Simulated scan of single mutants.
Amino acid sequence: MSARAAYRLAVLGVIAVCVIVSWTVIRHRLGNKPPPAPPGPRPAFQLPFPCGESWTLTTYSGHHDFDIDFFARSGNTGGRTVLASAAGTVTWAGWSATLGDGKPAPPGSSGTRGGLGYGVILDHGGGWFTEYGHLAAEPKVRTGDTVGLGQPLGVVGHTGSTTVDHLHYEQLNDRLDARRTRGNGDKVEAVFDGVPSGITADDTSKDQVRTSRNCPPAGP
């Protein structure tokens, strides 16, 4: 065997060893990584409005498929009380919006390039979250608070990336996305009082009408 052939064989041997070692390390790490926990049972979500109120659920082309815009069926939409859809913990409450140049928008502004404006995100456990956006003013809850079903979170407004009074609402299951981003990949069709919302596609879903069963518990 020539010196050149022996050199090539040695190089190939080194490469083979490196590949085997790398694969062994990767397989070991993957094997030790705990599998993602399955989602917990979906909470018994209710409409985020007081008992007996009727609301239109709608969306529009360019919205995410499962995002819902709520408009009151009678009277003014702005100023209506927004309630927690289920018991949980406030994982975020505050202000989030940007201007056209990407800079932060001043609190209370509307028609910005992006953002919920004043909003709240609730963690309901088991990977389930709800999101409430475009509130009229600073939320009535703070990050870290524990809230019960039907607890007031704020009032409907048009802060952030809108100029029309409505509530932006989402239900999310962050176990769908291994990165736990609570992004578009985690959104699911909202269910209220056990009934699917019907808002599943931003360009084809028809408006729906629902009456809130987010009612105080019956007395003794």
Score class of each variant (00 low, 15 high):
R4G: 08
A5F: 12
A6I: 07
R8T: 06
V11Q: 03
L12Y: 13
V14H: 04
C18T: 14
C18N: 11
V19A: 13
I20G: 06
V21R: 03
V21N: 02
S22P: 00
W23Y: 05
I26W: 10
H28S: 11
R29P: 00
R29T: 02
G31Q: 00
N32I: 01
P35D: 11
P35W: 05
P35H: 08
A37D: 09
P38L: 12
G40Y: 05
Q46I: 01
Q46P: 01
P48C: 05
C51S: 07
Y60N: 14
H63C: 09
H63I: 04
D65S: 09
D65K: 04
F66E: 12
F66M: 11
D67T: 15
D67I: 14
I68S: 13
F70I: 02
A72M: 08
G75D: 14
N76W: 01
N76C: 00
T77V: 04
T77L: 09
T77W: 08
G78Y: 05
G79T: 05
G79V: 03
R80I: 03
R80S: 08
T81R: 12
T81P: 12
A84G: 06
S85T: 15
A86L: 06
G88M: 06
T89A: 14
T91E: 12
W92N: 13
A93F: 07
A93P: 07
W95I: 03
S96E: 05
S96F: 10
L99K: 13
L99N: 15
G100D: 14
G102F: 13
K103R: 15
P104C: 11
P104L: 10
A105L: 04
P107N: 13
P107M: 12
S110H: 15
T112N: 13
L116A: 03
V120R: 08
V120M: 08
L122H: 03
G125Q: 09
E131G: 11
H134D: 11
H134T: 09
H134W: 08
A136E: 15
A136F: 05
A136G: 12
A136L: 08
A136Q: 13
K140F: 11
R142F: 10
G144T: 14
D145T: 10
V147L: 05
G148W: 05
G148L: 12
L149K: 14
L153I: 09
V155S: 12
V155Y: 11
V156M: 03
H158Y: 10
G160F: 03
T163E: 13
T163C: 13
H166F: 10
H166C: 07
L167E: 04
E170D: 15
Q171M: 14
R175T: 08
R175Q: 02
L176F: 01
A178C: 06
R180A: 15
R182C: 04
N184K: 11
G185A: 15
F192A: 03
F192Y: 02
F192V: 00
D193K: 03
G194E: 06
V195K: 01
P196E: 00
G198I: 03
G198K: 01
G198T: 01
I199V: 10
I199L: 09
T200G: 06
T204C: 13
S205A: 11
K206A: 14
Q208T: 00
R210H: 07
R210P: 00
R210F: 14
T211E: 05
T211L: 02
T211M: 04
S212D: 10
N214V: 01
C215R: 03
A218G: 09
G219L: 12
